[in-house]
Design a protein around this nucleic acid. Structure first.
Length: 272
DNA sequence: GTCCAGGCATGCA
DNA sequence: TGCATGCATGGA
């Protein structure tokens, strides 16, 4: 990767395998908004970004080296060798064509608190509605970082709310899950940093103890928010995909199953 | 009107 | 341990 600084903008070049349109709108993150010029705007860890892709050139507008180093390098996982990962995954017959067709999907390194809340909300829900609920949550209880763009509210802030407040955002029966989760994280009964340091197996056990978190939500949180690239969430779409793997998942998925999953999920939603 | 969406908690066997 | 059922909401 090459980094250039032009005024307040930062230009990144020579990045392999990052298609912003696919990555920011494939159901792993729910808060990025596509602008009329084709760029994407969003807030991560309280930091705003507008980013435009022109081929293999990425323009980060009006940002800083500090933001790049502390937030965006990790979020987009620029250190990971995706070319190599994609080659490995293409040993699988189904992924051989799928990876080419949707080349450039990356698994984002999201904030664990935001990811956990997001996927609790996601259960038995569709992506459009999930986005609406999360946006209302941020607008009501987050802080405005840039005009019209809000941070994801902290557990501390959400712990002050009552179940009715969550219901008013349209969360339905998931309101009670968010209410308890916020209070448990705010008071320290659930320690997300500690969970992040555990093994995949132990982290999964911890998440499964949370009210409103089952296997699917736990695996999504582990993959998208806790850095476990081997987590393999199975939702209604992936259940359909699993029929293509009657003998179990191939060996080439080992350690990177979650990335394989993201390509298969996208393929399933477009083809099944 | 019915069915479905990045499912889970609960009760029961 | 495994299975059936209820659950909020809005779009198709």
């Amino acid at each position: 990767m090459m980094v250039k600084y032009e005024g307040n903008d930062i230009i990144l070049e020579d990045i392999d395998c990052l298609n912003l349109d696919l990555t920011l709108d494939c159901g792993q993150a729910f808060r990025w908004e596509r602008q009329s010029d084709g760029s994407w705007s969003g807030v991560v860890k309280g930091v705003f970004l507008n980013i435009l892709q022109c081929g293999n050139r990425y323009i980060l507008k009006n940002t800083s080296k500090k933001a790049l180093d502390t937030v965006w390098l990790k979020y987009f996982d620029f250190d990971k060798d995706y070319a190599q990962i994609c080659n490995t995954l293409k040993q699988d017959e189904l992924l051989a064509s799928t990876v080419d067709e949707y080349y450039g999907i990356r698994v984002l390194n999201q904030d664990s608190w935001e990811a956990l809340c997001s996927f609790v909300i996601s259960q038995q829900n569709n992506i459009k509605r999930i986005k609406g609920i999360i946006n209302r949550l941020c607008r009501e209880y987050g802080e405005e970082v840039c005009e019209g763009f809000y941070s994801f509210p902290s557990a501390q802030r959400l712990s002050e709310l009552r179940v009715d407040d969550f219901e008013a955002l349209g969360m339905g029966y998931r309101a009670k899950y968010l209410e308890r989760l916020s209070k448990d994280v705010a008071c320290g009964r659930i320690d997300l940093k500690k969970i992040k340091a555990l093994s995949l197996e132990d982290a999964r056990k911890e998440l499964l103890n949370i009210f409103g978190v089952g296997i699917k939500v736990a695996d999504c949180a582990l993959l998208f928010g806790f850095g476990f690239y081997d987590a393999f969430p199975i939702d209604v779409w992936m259940k359909r995909v699993m029929e293509f793997y009657p003998n179990g998942l191939p060996e080439c998925f080992n350690g990177i199953g979650g990335i394989a999953q993201q390509y298969l999920f996208h393929w399933a939603r477009n083809n099944l």
